[in-house]
Amino acid sequence: MSTSTVTNKKLHDGSKWGNPGPMVYDMSKFGMWLFLGTEILLFAMLFTGYAIYYMKMPEDFHNSAKALSTTFGTINTIILIFSSFTVAWAIECIKKNKVKMMNILLVITILCGVAFLVNKYFEYAHEVHIGNLKLANMQWLGGTGRAVAESAVPSMFFFIYFVLTGIHGLHIIIGLGLLTWVLVKGIKGHFHSGWYTPVEIGGLYWHLVDLIWIYLFPLLYLVA
């Protein structure tokens, strides 16, 4: 590894909590994979719910899904696949000590994530406008029982759409936070070819978020 570029600073050797760098890398990756496992299980339950209700009311799913804009969905799918590519490239860059290129690619990835959310916002606004989504009956602490039926969303498909995309959106936000943290460290020059565990961990998480969307897209947009 070339240390000539950063001579005035002591390079982070990756050791943490008294463990050597390679061990930290190993443990962090293992831990992240386990965590991704829990995330997949979390979505698996929602997919199970989807499957059960799809079998119960296929017409509802077909008809309701028509109301979704495939264009919006397709654009978002392309954005996320592209961002998965840029984050993977960023990891390759840091392995070759190209810090600047890594930072640029991380910025592009983050911008993609933001673009996804903006797009999603317009989509939600559209659905609310035509009445498929109603954020009715805010009820926090206490309060009395409420009449759900007349005010809430009329279709099971839209419940599931709302819950799945909402929780996925939350994951995008968490992923963005993670990547921003990595970027800040990257700009500060923490990473080099001998220590890039956080970049890889952040990248892994971002891949998962993308992967889940790849499943959501056909289930929600193409089911019509």
């Binding site: 719910g49 209700y53 119960k56 009311m57 509802d60 109603k134 954020l135 009715a136 009956n137 805010m138 009820q139 926090w140 409420r146 759900v148 039926a149 005010s151 809430a152 969303v153 099971m156 419940f159 599931i160 709302f162 819950v163």
Partner: peptide, 12 residues
């Protein structure tokens, strides 16, 4: 909070 009817028989 949102009146989602996942487990509510009144909403299917």
């Amino acid at each position: 909070i949102f009146g989602v009817g996942f487990f509510n028989p009144e909403l299917g």
